[in-house]
Simulated scan of single mutants.
Amino acid sequence: MKKLFTMLCLTLGLGLSAFSYADEPLKIGFVYVSSTGEAGWTHTHDQARLNLEKVYGDKIKTTFIENVAEGPDAERVITQLAQSGHKLIFTTSFGFMNPTLKVAKRFPDVKFEHATGYKQAKNVGTYFDRIYEARYLTGVVAGYMSKSNVIGYIGAFPIPEVVRGINAFTLGARSVNPDIKVKVVWVNTWFDPAKEREATNSLIDQKADVITFHTDSPAPVQAAEDAGVYAIAYHSDMSQYGPKAQLTAAIHDWNDYYAKVTQAVLDGTWKSEDVWGGIAAGMTKIGPFNAEVPKEVADKVTALKEQMMNGTLHAFTGPIKNQAGEVILPEGEVMADGDLLSMDYYVEGVDGKLK
């Protein structure tokens, strides 16, 4: 009888323990390379985090750590999140890739999602949006709006992701204005408002009358506003920083993807994947058009966006030439994803050498 009572207590205890664990909220961690702010790359991820809280309520509990340097500091922060019971961790910068993989090996029961990376593991998935689609469309706007035929582009680091954006933007601009030249300045940082502003002013001095960028802060938009030139924002709508300057924006939207991943972890159906969704998937968008953009231009870009959504237009469709004038993609051919992901050259129309 005593043995039966003991077994009954153990069974009940285990049952209560499992029930209690199931009732605990899913702890989700976010690692950011810059501050959440009111605009930019990190801001878009944090907006998706806040959306998760609205969608899932007390089923989840989120934590974010901002201004995390890429490298050893990132590994330390990711480890702390895993050790403190976070079962889903989003690491949201390219330089977090290897630290994420290192930590994932030590915590096989934790699910990791790394933004912009290309290395996966059993418990590490990767994701990004085809922002080059919005780059192409906003390039069309810039091509129509530039009077000097010079567009300035601020690049963070010369990696395929950034080079792909430069090329897509250039192809879009030159599709409506073959005389366009895109000048690139590299700042070798994701987030440094002072450097970004300095680079903007340098490009304006070189006759650029439209500025765009692949960095995180709204400093280029602010500098363009101060100088009386146009800007194409990146990551998020930055019109509050340049209501006259910003023509439109290339925007990330992580809301639906983060909700989908969270639901999969809650359901126990999550698996490592490499996700690359664009305009058709709702992960990439373009911002509202400034009143300065003529209606016929806005209508043209909207029509092109619809073609991208239904698959009849691809930003990288031949013929495409490199800077040397060599055909790298024959007429009518669409560039394969592998070639897009490894892009290490400039297309015709980009002014400058790739570092």
Rank of each mutant, 00 (worst) to 15 (best):
F169S: 06
F169T: 10
T170L: 04
T170D: 03
T170S: 03
T170G: 02
T170N: 03
L171D: 02
L171R: 09
L171S: 05
L171C: 06
L171A: 04
L171K: 05
G172F: 09
G172W: 09
G172L: 12
G172D: 08
A173I: 00
R174N: 10
R174G: 08
R174I: 10
S175C: 10
S175H: 10
S175K: 09
V176C: 13
V176W: 13
V176G: 13
V176R: 14
V176S: 13
V176P: 10
N177A: 03
N177Q: 01
N177E: 01
N177K: 00
N177Y: 00
N177C: 04
N177H: 01
P178Q: 15
P178L: 15
P178Y: 15
P178M: 15
D179F: 12
D179G: 13
D179K: 15
D179S: 15
D179T: 14
I180A: 05
I180V: 13
I180P: 02
I180C: 06
I180Y: 03
I180S: 04
K181Y: 00
K181S: 06
K181G: 02
K181M: 02
K181H: 03
V182G: 12
V182K: 10
V182L: 14
V182C: 13
V182R: 09
V182Y: 11
V182N: 12
K183G: 02
K183F: 01
K183N: 03
K183I: 05
K183C: 01
K183R: 10
K183W: 00
V184L: 10
V184H: 08
V184G: 09
V184M: 09
V184T: 11
V184F: 09
V185I: 13
V185L: 08
V185K: 14
V185N: 07
V185E: 08
W186S: 06
W186H: 06
W186Y: 12
W186F: 10
W186K: 03
W186N: 06
V187Q: 08
V187K: 11
V187T: 14
V187F: 09
V187W: 11
V187I: 15
V187N: 08
N188V: 06
N188Y: 15
N188P: 06
N188W: 14
N188Q: 13
N188D: 15
N188L: 14
T189E: 07
T189L: 04
T189K: 05
T189R: 04
W190C: 05
W190R: 02
W190T: 02
W190G: 04
F191K: 07
F191G: 07
F191R: 08
D192T: 01
D192Q: 05
D192Y: 03
D192C: 02
D192N: 13
D192M: 05
P193Q: 12
P193W: 11
P193A: 13
P193K: 13
P193S: 12
P193G: 11
A194Q: 07
A194D: 07
A194I: 07
K195N: 12
K195V: 05
E196I: 14
E196A: 13
E196F: 12
E196L: 12
R197D: 04
R197W: 01
R197P: 00
R197V: 04
R197K: 10
R197F: 01
E198L: 07
E198T: 11
E198C: 00
E198P: 00
E198N: 04
A199V: 07
A199E: 07
A199Q: 05
A199Y: 03
